[in-house]
């Protein structure tokens, strides 16, 4: 099933939580919605699910107008950030709920409901917990039960709001892989909210980056990482070194000193130079655009992370770079740096 969101606007008072959001999700896709806290991710999901209503715009599920239907008629599976399991029901009854509330005409008989619930509990590998109450489960188990419950109604689409948000790093990682393999098994069109970029890049086919109620970029994980469309995306996805520069007449200056890099068509004026930590080429002093003193080196695994105080200008700018360990850096050493890959975006304001 496809999801189409057109020009959605949602205001809370004067504040626009969603500002003209446009999004298309293809059949069987697993899409990650990524953005900082308050960027409108939950609001968008709630509107798609029918738990909230937009002030303007359209929502189409499989081409059909969804805004004409309430949440109970949309057949959208929703996994809530805080699980929202029914606390007075057993795990079994939680999963069976969606089947039991169906209109009598289409409701399955008890034996079929039991079989279906059993099947779902097997799918999430928790059939042995059927008679427990939600309070007797661990966070990761609750999360999987919430997912099984949402899947019980054979939803047309599946929406997951920060499904692993409240879990510790190790469990998150497990569930992440588990979710990806589950998706390749059942292939339901899914949107999955997170503010953890690693999670988004690892699980999703495509990533949507949101900020302040707007979509900043839509692309494959590789795309948003390698070709960020805006300064926000560059800063948000992956760690970046950001330097304030001045672009004029095709040259780029940092604190008045020209850098040996091309402006790449960036507009003249105050700008920001973005470089990934690992995209700084290290050379002997006097050979690159930037120069600085190594203040601090920490080595782990294949890389060394160095803190470098840039010289020139105020001399106050300190950046962190990741370098391979083929050339060990020493604290106090003066080195030169040359951006291998970089992006220049106009500074806002």
């Amino acid at each position: 099933m496809t999801i189409e969101v057109k020009n959605i606007v949602k205001r809370f008072g004067a504040f626009a939580a969603l500002d003209n959001v446009d999004l298309k999700v293809g059949k069987g896709e697993l899409l990650a919605l990524l953005g900082p806290s308050g960027s409108g991710k939950t609001t968008l999901l709630r509107i798609i699910a029918g738990l909230d209503w937009p002030d303007a715009g359209e929502v189409r599920i499989d081409g059909e107008d969804a805004l004409g239907h309430g949440a109970s008629e949309r057949h959208v599976g929703f996994v809530f950030q805080h699980y929202a399991l029914f606390r007075h029901m057993t795990v079994f009854e939680n999963v069976a709920f969606g089947l039991r509330v169906q209109p009598r005409a289409v409701r399955k008989d008890e034996a079929k409901i039991r079989a279906r619930v059993k099947e779902l509990l097997d799918l999430v590998q928790l059939d042995w917990l059927a008679n427990r109450y939600p309070s007797q489960l661990s966070g990761g188990q609750r999360q999987r039960i919430a997912l099984a419950r949402a899947l019980a109604i054979e939803p047309r689409i599946l929406l997951l709001d920060e499904p692993f948000g409240a879990l510790d790093a190790k469990v998150r990682k497990e569930l992440r892989q588990w979710l990806r393999s589950l998706h390749s098994e059942i292939h339901v069109t899914s949107i999955f909210v997170t503010h953890d970029q690693e999670e988004a890049l690892e699980v999703a086919n495509r990533v949507v980056v949101m900020d302040k109620g707007r979509i900043e970029q839509i692309g494959t994980p590789g795309d948003v990482y390698d070709n960020p469309a805006t300064a926000f995306v560059h800063g948000f996805i992956g760690e970046s070194i950001v330097l304030p520069v001045e672009v004029s007449g095709g040259s780029v200056r940092l604190a008045g000193r020209p850098l040996n890099i091309a402006a790449d068509g960036a507009a003249a004026g105050a700008s920001k130079l973005f470089v990934r930590r690992h995209d700084m080429q290290i050379g002997p002093a006097g050979t690159g655009s930037l120069e600085g003193a190594v203040r601090h080196v920490r080595s782990f695994g294949p890389i060394q992370r160095a803190e470098i105080a840039l010289s020139g200008g105020e001399g106050k700018t300190v950046i962190e770079i990741d370098a391979p360990r083929d050339r060990e850096l020493q604290a106090g050493e003066i080195i030169s740096l040359q951006p291998r890959r970089y992006r220049i975006f106009a500074a806002k304001e």
Binding site: L51, A71, A84, V101, A150
Partner: peptide
Amino acid sequence: QEEEAAISLGASGLQ
């Protein structure tokens, strides 16, 4: 939350 979950699972207001 639990009410919203119920509704999204297809329950009517009374249910």
